[in-house]
Design a protein around this nucleic acid. Structure first.
Lengths: 141, 141
DNA sequence: TATTGTTATACTCTATAACTATA
DNA sequence: TATAGTTATAGAGTATAACAATA
């Protein structure tokens, strides 16, 4: 009865991580959503902007201005899909790949500092628990 | 290198929990922040609205309208502090306590369903890991 | 007729500053 | 002068609807 709700705890952890990531993102000149977008494209180029929006669970109309900025910064490229000229193929430029890698390293180092006194087993279970919360289903649904 | 960032993972888990909590909150007629406020007051009545705002890390100006609604719903009471007439003591009414307990039970049951196949040790480490992320400091700061 | 990308509009949420009453 | 509560206003963030091009 003295524990916080899991949701509240999770929300606080998220805000704390976001707060610690912000200065790193600022240094590299990208917003949180821009970094998430770069991460998604690093995993796999998008066959359309709509597919990309769904992959990162971001609004498709807001994604447009975000991609405009990333394109103007030379971090991504958009080109029409020859097989479906409505769609635009989105991928990282070499500079985009490089930028994403640099930011990722900085963020991982920050995470490692936060988790420093946790031990490998506890870290692993935290990660797998979070993955369960994020992606796992519920018994009976 | 194949893992997601901890921040992204945590954000997804938070959104998932919030999504699953929403229908429960709707049933009981309170918003997420209203529930967080009731939870804070259930732990301990507030000696001022400012103290309450800081405790839940919510903006003091937005808290006002939120408390207005909770007061109109008969879930909290505000009365001037006799020792400092600038401040207002905020506490749950009996109905507020009852409402909070009911919502809390519903949310805990939902959480238990999500965590059903996780085992007590994994649950405990998930909770302590999250608490570390949420409240823990960083080596060197 | 449906879908992709886009723009424009309206709406909500959040942050800032200013005011009052007390101290 | 500083603080608690409040209000008003401006800004950012978000959601909705509509349009052109293509399928």
């Amino acid at each position: 009865m003295t524990d916080e709700d899991l949701g509240e705890l999770c929300a606080r952890a998220t805000r704390r991580l976001a707060k610690d990531e912000q200065p790193l993102l600022d240094e590299h000149g990208v917003s949180m959503w821009q970094y998430i977008t770069l991460s998604a494209l690093a995993r796999e180029p998008a066959r359309s902007q709509l597919e990309l929006a769904r992959a990162i669970r971001y609004d498709k109309t807001r994604l447009i201005a975000l991609l405009d900025e990333l394109e103007a910064a030379g971090l991504i490229s958009r080109r029409p899909d020859p097989e479906d000229r409505r769609a635009r193929l989105v991928s990282l430029t070499p500079e985009g790949t490089q930028r994403h890698t640099a930011i990722r390293h900085a963020i991982r180092a920050m995470e490692d500092r936060i988790l420093a006194d946790l031990g490998p087993a506890a870290r692993g279970l935290l990660r797998s628990g979070l993955r369960h919360l994020a992606y796992g289903g519920v018994a009976g649904s």
